[in-house]
Simulated assay, not measured.
Amino acid sequence: MSEAVHILALATIDKGKAADLEKVVQECAKHSLQEKACKRYEIARDAENEGRFTVSEIWASQEGFEAHLATEHFGVLAAFAKEHGAELEVIRQVPLHPAA
């Protein structure tokens, strides 16, 4: 069995588009949480920067994460981000505590 994949994604967009991005991210989260390989998919809005969001994800395997990237709901999010000039950073993390 593959090792779990831990992701932290940061998305920053113009404040005028923040509410729209929030809706798209929430819709993606709703569907992502239904994916078999999804162990966690939490979104948050930055309390001090209206246009910045974080997504903390855990996927059961690399294969599960790659399958997520090929889904329609992720494609909608990626297309919205690209169309509206959102800056995206995806960080693959290695947990340093035993509870991970």
Rank of each mutant, 00 (worst) to 15 (best):
H68V: 03
H68T: 01
A11R: 00
H68Y: 02
T71K: 08
A37N: 04
S61A: 09
S56Y: 13
V55I: 15
A70R: 11
K23H: 03
A60P: 03
N49V: 12
K17A: 12
E35Q: 09
A19T: 10
A18G: 03
D14G: 11
A19L: 14
A79P: 02
I43P: 05
E48G: 13
C28F: 06
T54M: 09
D46E: 06
E27S: 10
G64A: 04
L77V: 06
S61P: 02
I13N: 01
L21H: 02
Q26Y: 09
S61F: 01
A29D: 05
R40K: 15
E27R: 12
A29I: 10
E22M: 11
L77Q: 06
E22K: 15
L8V: 11
I58Y: 08
C38S: 08
A9V: 05
L8I: 07
R52V: 01
K15W: 02
K39C: 12
I58E: 04
I58C: 08
E66S: 13
A9F: 04
F74C: 09
K23I: 07
E63D: 14
S61H: 02
E27L: 13
D46N: 14
A79C: 08
Q34H: 11
G75T: 11
V24H: 03
N49L: 13
A60C: 09
E72A: 14
T54F: 10
F65V: 05
R45Q: 15
K23N: 07
C38K: 04
L77M: 10
I43T: 12
E57I: 01
Q26D: 08
F74K: 10
N49F: 02
E48Q: 12
A70S: 11
H31N: 09
E42L: 15
E66Y: 04
S56A: 14
E72Q: 12
D46V: 06
K36P: 00
R52E: 07
V25M: 15
A47R: 09
H31Q: 10
I13P: 01
T71F: 01
N49P: 01
G16R: 07
L10D: 00
C38Q: 09
A60V: 07
V76P: 00
E22V: 03
A18S: 05
F53D: 01
T12H: 09
A29S: 13
E27D: 14
S56P: 00
A19R: 12
L21G: 00
Q34P: 00
G75F: 03
A18Y: 02
Y41D: 02
L21F: 14
K23G: 07
L69K: 13
H73Y: 05
F53W: 04
C38D: 03
R52T: 12
E48T: 14
E57Q: 09
R52A: 14
F80E: 03
W59N: 06
F53V: 03
L69C: 13
E72R: 12
A79F: 08
G16H: 04
V55M: 07
L69W: 00
E35S: 09
I43W: 08
L10C: 03
C38F: 06
D46Q: 03
I13E: 01
T12I: 07
N49G: 05
W59F: 08
A44K: 10
D46R: 04
